[in-house]
């Protein structure tokens, strides 16, 4: 249980730091300017360094995970997306994985029934919960672009409109706010519910979940309950986008909690499992063509070996072989 409570306590402490810092110590410059800039620098640099590190690693052989017929002879039908052999097929496969989590869709669950039979069954809940969580998060992040543009782009307007489809409460209730909270609750309880899952779950699995949950809860609180004054927030966000270092205006402490937790998430990102966002594109088991029957892939690590062919051997010893009456290929 320590694995669950430690991250929970850490997130609570992280949320308290900016609240105390701004409310009682007046550190709004630190939490409104210095830390956000640091966070974005760490996120971008860290992300790029991780990607560069992975890109430098040689992958000498074709190791794609496939579950379909490989392309071989003309008259054998092959599976374009399960065993891709052209670049665009690989690209489509990666894209489907990123957008719709195809491999999770195939998730199965094994359980022992009462009559002691082992049974396997399709188990789509993780796929569904993960999809709901990631898509809501994407829409929420895109919706936040209204803080970063002086004139709000039409796309954001459209997105907010669709998201606020139900048109209830003031300010309008966004569907994704609820979906992301339900999904993250499910994802946490999925880990806690099953003994096997509890065993393999680590602090690094719970921490980002709790951190994102805290960010969402504080955001929901600001929007629907406290109804934070948004004008100085927009001023401050525009300043950050324009690389200005002016002090922020008079903003409620709750906003700094939100911003600080987002900064923590950004700094944590390149050092953690959250890097799966970049890694999924670079995973060699997924981003390679399965074409080893068509093309020879030579390991670049192989040291150059001087081979001696039989023809050369025969050239050297032809006379001696003739004398010994050994058969020779070339007279």
């Amino acid at each position: 249980m320590k694995k669950v409570f430690m991250p929970l306590v850490m997130v609570a402490i992280l949320a308290l730091i900016p609240f105390v810092g701004v409310q009682y110590a007046g550190l709004s410059y630190l939490f409104g300017v210095i830390i956000p800039y640091t966070a974005i620098v760490v996120l971008l640099a860290g992300f790029l360094l991780r990607l560069a590190d992975w890109l430098r690693r040689p992958v000498p052989f074709r190791i794609p995970t496939t579950c379909g017929q490989e392309k071989s002879l003309e008259w054998i039908k092959y599976d374009r997306f399960e065993s891709p052999h052209r670049f665009w097929e690989v690209a489509a496969r990666v894209l489907f994985e990123v957008l719709f989590f195809r491999s999770l869709f195939r998730n199965t669950k094994a359980e022992i029934h009462k009559d002691a039979n082992l049974a396997y069954g399709s188990h789509k809940w993780l796929w569904f919960g993960g999809l709901a969580f990631h898509w809501s998060l994407l829409i929420i992040v895109l919706r936040h672009s209204r803080f970063f543009f002086p004139m709000v782009p039409g796309f954001t307007d459209l997105l907010s409109h669709v998201d606020g489809f139900f048109d209830v409460t003031l300010p309008t209730f966004y569907i994704t706010d609820a979906v992301v909270l339900v999904a993250i609750t499910f994802l946490v309880f999925r880990r806690l519910n099953d003994a096997k899952m509890r065993l393999i779950s680590l602090q690094t699995d719970y921490f980002p979940l709790f951190l994102i949950a805290a960010i969402v809860v504080v955001g929901v609180f600001m929007r629907y309950l406290t109804r934070l004054d948004i004008m100085p927030v927009k001023d401050q966000m525009l300043r950050l986008v324009n690389f200005s270092v002016d002090a922020p205006g008079d903003i409620g402490a709750l906003f700094y909690v939100h911003l600080f937790l987002v900064s923590v998430l950004a700094i944590y990102f390149p050092f953690s499992k959250l890097m799966h966002a970049g890694a999924i594109f670079l995973s060699p088991t997924r981003n390679q063509c399965n074409n080893s029957r068509e093309k020879r892939h030579i390991n670049p690590w192989n040291t150059a070996i001087k081979f001696r062919t039989y023809a050369e051997y025969e050239d050297d010893y032809r006379e001696k072989m003739k004398k010994a009456k050994l058969p020779i290929e070339k007279q």
Binding site: T156, S160, M231, K234
Partner: peptide
């Protein structure tokens, strides 16, 4: 003026 700047659209 302010509501379009902050993109806040109550009904």
């Amino acid at each position: 003026n302010c509501h379009s700047y902050a993109n806040v659209k109550p009904k």
